Simulated scan of single mutants.
Amino acid sequence: MWPMLAVAGPSLGDGDVGSFVDADGRKTVWSIEKGSPRLDGESTGWGTGPPVGGGSAPVAVLTSRSTASSGEAVTVASRGRPDTAPSGRTPQASPPETHGTDCPTGRPST
């Protein structure tokens, strides 16, 4: 997902864009800083990029039932962003990071 966020980062603008939450409720935040994705404030190894349109240029986010994994991460990251128009079908909603974990209810995730 980090390569996709690195490409989208300059269009997303700086700030928190998403997070993982583990079974104990601990949150790990993804953010963009100077166009580069970060995990809990630490670099994910990608360089910086100048913001596109000051990080507020209009963006269309196109999804389909085939949108999965890093495409879903970019979809999540674009939510709440000003001048962003989502379009298409609901994504697959099963990023690989969630596979193999149990929900707090005891039911396995899919």
Rank of each mutant, 00 (worst) to 15 (best):
M4A: 12
E42D: 15
L12K: 05
W30F: 15
L12E: 07
S36Q: 14
V17Q: 04
G80L: 08
G49S: 06
F20Q: 07
G25N: 08
T110E: 09
P91L: 08
A68H: 12
T101H: 14
R65W: 04
W30T: 03
P95W: 11
G88D: 02
P95Q: 14
R38L: 10
T105Q: 05
G25K: 01
W46Q: 14
R79F: 03
A77E: 03
G47V: 02
T98I: 11
G80S: 05
E33Q: 10
A77N: 02
T75H: 07
M4F: 15
V21C: 01
W2Q: 12
S66G: 11
G9A: 07
G106I: 08
G18A: 11
D40P: 11
R89V: 01
P82T: 03
V21R: 12
V7F: 14
T98F: 11
S43L: 12
S11M: 13
S56C: 13
R26P: 00
T110H: 13
R65T: 06
L5V: 01
W46T: 07
S19H: 15
P10Q: 04
M4N: 14
G80E: 04
S69L: 06
G18E: 00
M4S: 12
S78P: 02
T105K: 08
G49W: 02
G25I: 09
V17N: 03
S43M: 09
E97A: 15
T44F: 11
G88L: 01
V76G: 00
E42F: 00
P96G: 14
R26A: 15
A57S: 10
A73H: 09
W46Y: 15
G55P: 06
S69C: 09
K27R: 14
P37N: 07
V7Q: 10
A57N: 02
P86L: 06
P3H: 04
S19P: 00
V74C: 00
P50I: 08
A57H: 05
V74S: 04
T28G: 03
R26Y: 08
K34E: 13
V7N: 04
G55Y: 05
F20V: 13
D16N: 12
W2G: 04
P3E: 10
G100F: 12
E97I: 13
L5W: 06
A73Q: 14
P50V: 08
A23V: 13
T63W: 02
P58A: 05
P95V: 15
M1F: 09
D24H: 11
D83R: 14
L39V: 12
G80H: 04
S94A: 14
P50H: 03
S94I: 15
S31E: 09
S87Q: 12
A77H: 10
G53K: 05
D102T: 13
T63Q: 02
S36M: 05
P50D: 12
H99G: 10
A60F: 01
E42V: 13
